[in-house]
């Protein structure tokens, strides 16, 4: 464990909690892409199956349980409890355009052709593009609630911090995983446009609205 990975995990946890609180407090999931939340639930489910097979640490297990629990709680909020506030008309990204290439790639490019490894690879590739429906929805509605931009900021920041974690681990442990690094780079690059708007607008007290 290093400071980048710890702050990365805490940033990820903060994002997940901010989203749950936003929906719970405002009793509305307006502006939230249910499709992205489905993809995140799939990412966690396919990546954390090793909860059943191996124990790494209390931290590792408890964080995985929290992530999976919050992911499904969010889905419950979006598609059941606060379904009336779900803006399906703007959440129209074709997720099959993500699932098919990502599914195919995880069979072609992986470290080991075993079920758990392919599922892990699939979750890594899927996570890198899972935010696209959410970013697409914001571009369609032309704006985002400020609390939603904070959610996106911490979500994007978490994988950026993981990139530093991988630099740290390569330098100090001589370890690296090309699949996770390339996917993490793609994932972080997809947030760059949002990061620019967040820093130049939201942090200056303005509302995030597009076109910029």
């Amino acid at each position: 464990m290093n400071v980048f990975r710890l702050t990365g995990d805490l940033s990820h946890l903060a994002a997940i909690i901010i989203l749950l609180l936003k929906i719970w407090k405002t009793r509305s999931c307006a502006g939230i892409s249910g499709k992205s939340q489905i993809l995140f639930a799939v990412v966690f489910t396919s990546r954390y199956l090793d909860l059943l097979t191996s124990f790494i640490s209390l931290y590792n297990t408890s964080m995985k349980v929290i992530y999976i629990g919050c992911a499904y709680a969010t889905l419950y909020f979006v598609y059941m409890k606060f379904k009336a506030t779900y803006d399906g008309n703007h959440d129209t990204f074709r997720v099959e355009f993500l699932l098919v290439p990502v599914g195919g790639l995880s069979f072609l490019v992986n470290h080991d052709f075993s079920p758990l490894e392919i599922l892990w690879t699939f979750s890594i590739y899927l996570e890198s593009v899972a935010i696209l429906p959410q970013l697409f929805m914001i571009s369609k509605t032309g704006e985002a609630e400020t609390i939603t931009t904070h959610y996106l900021f911490f979500l994007g920041l978490y994988r950026a911090l993981y990139l530093f974690n991988w630099i740290w681990r390569f330098y100090f442990e001589g370890f690296f995983d090309m699949i996770a690094i390339v996917a993490g780079l793609v994932q972080t690059i997809l947030y760059c446009d949002f990061f620019y708007l967040y820093i130049t607008k939201v942090l200056k007290g303005k509302k995030l609205s597009l076109p910029a």
């Binding site: 990975r5 191996s54 892990w120």
Partner: peptide, 10 residues
């Protein structure tokens, strides 16, 4: 393989 280690990451 090298990816074995990364399974300690979330």
């Amino acid at each position: 393989s090298q990816s074995r280690n990364i399974k300690d990451e979330l």
